[in-house]
Design a binder for these strands. Structure first.
Lengths: 114, 114
DNA sequence: CAATCATATGATTAAGTGTTCATATGTTCA
DNA sequence: TGAACATATGAACACTTAATCATATGATTG
C-alpha cells in the first residue's frame, strides 16, 4: 500500500493524468483565491459591496465589525484583487474588482442553497 | 469615528442595506464552502477528480500526498458535499459531487489566469 | 480464521489566521 | 499650522488547521 495500489490505474496512466493537472503554482494561487472567500467576515464585506461602492466606515457599520478589522480585511481583499478602491478626500471608497467576484459568490451561494 | 462616520450613507440607508445582506448563517455556510476550496492539496484532489472517479490510493499518488492525508481531506470534502463516493469491495471510489463544484473551480481559475 | 489490502480515524505538533488594542498616516478645514 | 476625521498598520494573543505517525476498521482471499 506504500506507493502504488493495485486498484485501477497503471503507472503510465497515473503519469498521464498527473501531467494534465494544473501546475503546483497555479493550484496554489487558486487555493489562495478561495481562501480569501473562506471567511464569514470577508464574504459579508463582499456582499455589502455587491452592487455599490462603500467607504470603510460604512462597511464596518454594515458588517458589525471594527474599523480596524474592516481595514485589515480590505487590505487582504485588495492584495488579491477582489476589490478596488478610489480616494475622495479623506474617504476611500471600495468596490468589487470585477464580475468574476460576483460570479464566484453566486456559484457558491447556489451550492449552499441546495 | 466610533460608530457612524459622516461619509455618505444615512442611518436609514445603512439599515436598509443591512437587511438586504444574506443572513449570518447563510454567510457562514458560504464561507465554509470556500474555505474547503482554500487549500492547495484539496484543490489538487478536486482537479484530479475533474473528469473521472478515482480510488483513495490513486488520488494520493496523483497528488503526491500520503494516504492518510488524502483520507483526511476526502473526509472534509465529503462532509461538505463536494465529493461523493461508492464502495467496490475494498476500494472506495471518489468523484465530484455535482457540476457546481466544476463551475466554482472554473470561475476561480478564470480569475487566477488573468 | 488469519493474512493482506484499502481506507479511516485519533492524537500530536507546527504553522497560519482573525481580532483587538494602540498608534501611525494622510486629508481637510478653520 | 493644528485639530479632527478617515483609514492604515503593527504587535500580541487566542484559535484553527494541515501533516504526520500510529493504529483501527472493513473487505477480500487463501
Amino acid at each position: 500500500m506504500d506507493e502504488n495500489c493495485s486498484c485501477t490505474l497503471t503507472d503510465s496512466e497515473i503519469e498521464r493524468i498527473k501531467n494534465d493537472l494544473p501546475g503546483d503554482e497555479e493550484l496554489y494561487y487558486l487555493a489562495e483565491l478561495f481562501r480569501i472567500f473562506g471567511d464569514p467576515t470577508r464574504v459579508k464585506i463582499l456582499y455589502s459591496l455587491f452592487d455599490m461602492e462603500l467607504c470603510v466606515c460604512d462597511i464596518a457599520t454594515l458588517c458589525d465589525i471594527s474599523q480596524s478589522s474592516a481595514s485589515h480585511h480590505l487590505r487582504t481583499l485588495r492584495a488579491n484583487k477582489l476589490v478596488k478602491f478610489r480616494r475622495n478626500g479623506k474617504t476611500i471608497f471600495y468596490s468589487l474588482a470585477d464580475d468574476h467576484v460576483r460570479s464566484i459568490m453566486g456559484q457558491g451561494m447556489e451550492h449552499v442553497e441546495e
